[in-house]
Design a binder for these strands. Sequence first.
DNA 1: GCTTGACCTCAAGTTAGCTTGAGGTTGCAC
DNA 2: GTGCAACCTCAAGCTAACTTGAGGTCAAGC
Lengths: 146, 146
Amino acid sequence: MDRNDLLPIGDLARRTGLAVSAIRFYEDKGLISSLRTSGNQRRFLRSDIRRLSFILIAQKLGLGLVEIETELSKLPQGRTPTINDWQKISRSLRKEIDARIALLNRTRAKLDECIGCGCLSLQRCQLYNREDRAGAAGAGPRYVLD
Amino acid sequence: MDRNDLLPIGDLARRTGLAVSAIRFYEDKGLISSLRTSGNQRRFLRSDIRRLSFILIAQKLGLGLVEIETELSKLPQGRTPTINDWQKISRSLRKEIDARIALLNRTRAKLDECIGCGCLSLQRCQLYNREDRAGAAGAGPRYVLD
DNA sequence: GCTTGACCTCAAGTTAGCTTGAGGTTGCAC
DNA sequence: GTGCAACCTCAAGCTAACTTGAGGTCAAGC
């Protein structure tokens, strides 16, 4: 592994569009790891760019950092992930997207009924039920979500 | 207006599934308003059940309370909203859903390309751009979102 | 050898969306 | 007229996902 293949945190930040502080934060949370120079500065692998990309995409889908870490933990330990590894884990994201689209479609169908009668009634329209609220993107009142 | 048409906060909570504290919080934020008894207790209109329902649905779509207030402010002031009023504002929500579905479809298409090459590269796959990140559900790093 | 920008740590602050707790009051039923 | 559940206010706490600031170090160019 060439010395030039190790990136300081600022470079990684520039490559991903992330703030330096965000990358440090992710390392703290265990989403990414780094080597250290003798002077205690972080050095990252090139493949970490991809890792951060994955984090950004997954976040966009509404996954929390904890869930993202779970996904990332499916990558092979000890060696740099191959393209094949990334394909596998990306397909898992694709399922997430599919699920979200399906949920939105159901919500839309129910809302359409409600627009029909104008009621917006929890009882009649059943626009809420645990199933749907569970997969929701928004935070929502905790009491209801428990 | 009959005296019986005024609901104490606990009843409203039971009808909507919200916590009492959440309703008070929404009132504080100006999403809902109440009358007071001589003893300073809140009394709500029956139509507030619908108002809270709307808030819950909109939250499920990932709208923030501020955006929801903006929507709600389109309801007529001074009188209880009619079914027609609710239909109008609900259609606005429907558009939100449509937009979100469209965004997810675009994201999925891009991810599919990425799965194809396994790159997950920000440059090549263009899985990020401001347009998409803007409509995203998740929080995302603030620096990038600015 | 000195300056300067990039880097370090650790603590505290920020926003959203609520909940929890303390300490006190109301109102309905018996 | 008394008991007690339901209500009140206000302050503080909580989680997620970061940012900001203070105070200090490292490293490369002049």
